[in-house]
Design a protein around this nucleic acid. Structure first.
Lengths: 242, 242
DNA sequence: TGTACATCAGTGAACGCGCGTTCACTGATGTAC
DNA sequence: TGTACATCAGTGAACGCGCGTTCACTGATGTAC
């Protein structure tokens, strides 16, 4: 990732990027199962063996693509998060966009990304590829996605604008323990209720997008966008945003 | 499906069942992508070509397995539903199990099924197989699953035990239209709010199970069962069950 | 600046694999008279 | 009940396919003196 010193290194970087671009395109068009070194090489008008100069084999190429997918989605979520929060804090009451509307922004961005990249969504949240272990590098972008989504909740909490009716609800010790990693990693100094509700919201978000992207709304939900917005608004309300 | 008249027909039925059993086992062990006619034939000690007497080809065999998966899950959900509702109606207040606890039963059964059959769950709710159209016969078992889950809500509604605080919430005309097929097919004479909340519950259920089955709770949710129960209880409460 | 050697990108042929599907066939089971 | 023919299950060889990966090689780019 450092600046290329020699012409050879520069070409190598460009070539690597080109291979990834073609592979990404094949993945988007035909899915992970159909991705093959030979077809990528064919499109690049290279010998299949040449790709071994850049990737250790098919699995390494696929790993790179998975990581790219995570990072692409994370970047998108973060981009949306900054857009959602920045105007709200600079002019708090302007244009009537409260915390609940802020909260809509990131989920919508995630949904848009998923609809634009259905196979990549499947790579992240769909059936795991058999005999394939998710690379460890995906943990960090995964966390970034969750952080982006949760940002408006943290902001509202910090500003004392989080509804308090629900906060009296009891959370059992077992449940508190069950979500402990999320509490510690994502919500320092937050009541357990909020943490639980946030993970539930995440769960619903993944479910609603997967159902739509994987084609299960056919003949069931006629207007997925409408239902999506309503669902996310309900989640926001449940979490005490308004 | 009619009774076999001749010995030949009886053997044919047994053979078909045996092929499906082996194929189901391969699917469960290695996933849909790894399912091949030749490996099934090998295990049955038959020539690969012999399978063509029973199935039109690999795709037909896979279609049969998909349908089986839907029907297996539907049967499981229905079995749970009758268990959940029967005792509650016969002795309404006994053993303290209210509508909310009733509602837990079917989702738990669905989760258990999914954990026992992860690849089959993936076949139904995971990444769609590329270039593969879901058989039309899956519509009916899919509906049966939803019906089973929703049964306690219908019972509570019929008995007038459904909480009414939330029922004043406005549902826009667009949203009502968006979920119209569900209203008509699953909830005759139910206010739109309940329908929307039920589909949201379905969404959350699919999301929470997929996240667990596909391995996304690693290092996040330490006790998936505990979190699952809590989430479903929250859904029940949101829908006005108690 | 010029030469000798090392490094690296890319080639092309080949290996072995497992796959779905076809086809002509053999032999057993069922049916009609 | 017995025979002649039709139906069907299953065989085994073969076809052609695309795949991942290896290997010895050529020629260009970079480096050290």
């Amino acid at each position: 990732m450092s600046a290329p010193r020699t012409a050879r290194e520069r070409v190598r970087q460009e070539m690597t990027a080109e291979i990834l671009a073609v592979a990404r395109e094949h993945l988007a068009r035909e899915g992970a199962a159909a991705l093959s070194l030979r077809s990528v090489a064919r499109e690049l008008e290279m010998a299949p063996s040449a790709l071994y100069r850049y990737f250790d084999g098919r699995d390494a190429l696929l790993s790179a693509l998975i990581l790219e997918a995570y990072e692409s989605l994370a970047a998108e979520a973060e981009r949306a998060a900054t857009q959602a929060v920045a105007p709200a804090t600079s002019q708090p009451e302007a244009s009537g966009s409260g915390d609940a509307e802020c909260f809509l922004v990131v989920p919508r961005a995630i949904r848009d990304w998923a609809l634009a990249h259905p196979h990549e969504w499947g790579l992240i949240f769909g059936t795991p590829i058999p005999g394939y272990e998710a690379p460890e590098d995906t943990v960090q972008p995964y966390a970034r996605i969750a952080e982006a989504m949760v940002l408006p909740v943290l902001e509202a909490h910090a500003a004392g604008r989080l509804g308090s009716e629900l906060h009296r609800r009891a959370v059992s010790e077992e449940l508190r323990d069950a979500v402990a990693p999320v509490s510690e990693g994502l919500f320092p100094d937050m009541p357990a209720v909020n943490v639980v509700l946030a993970v539930e919201a995440w769960t619903t978000l993944v479910g609603i997008i997967s159902l739509e992207v994987f084609g299960h709304w056919r003949n069931t939900i006629l207007d997925p966008g409408e239902f999506f917005d309503a669902t996310i608004r309900d989640l926001a309300a449940t979490m005490g945003l308004s």
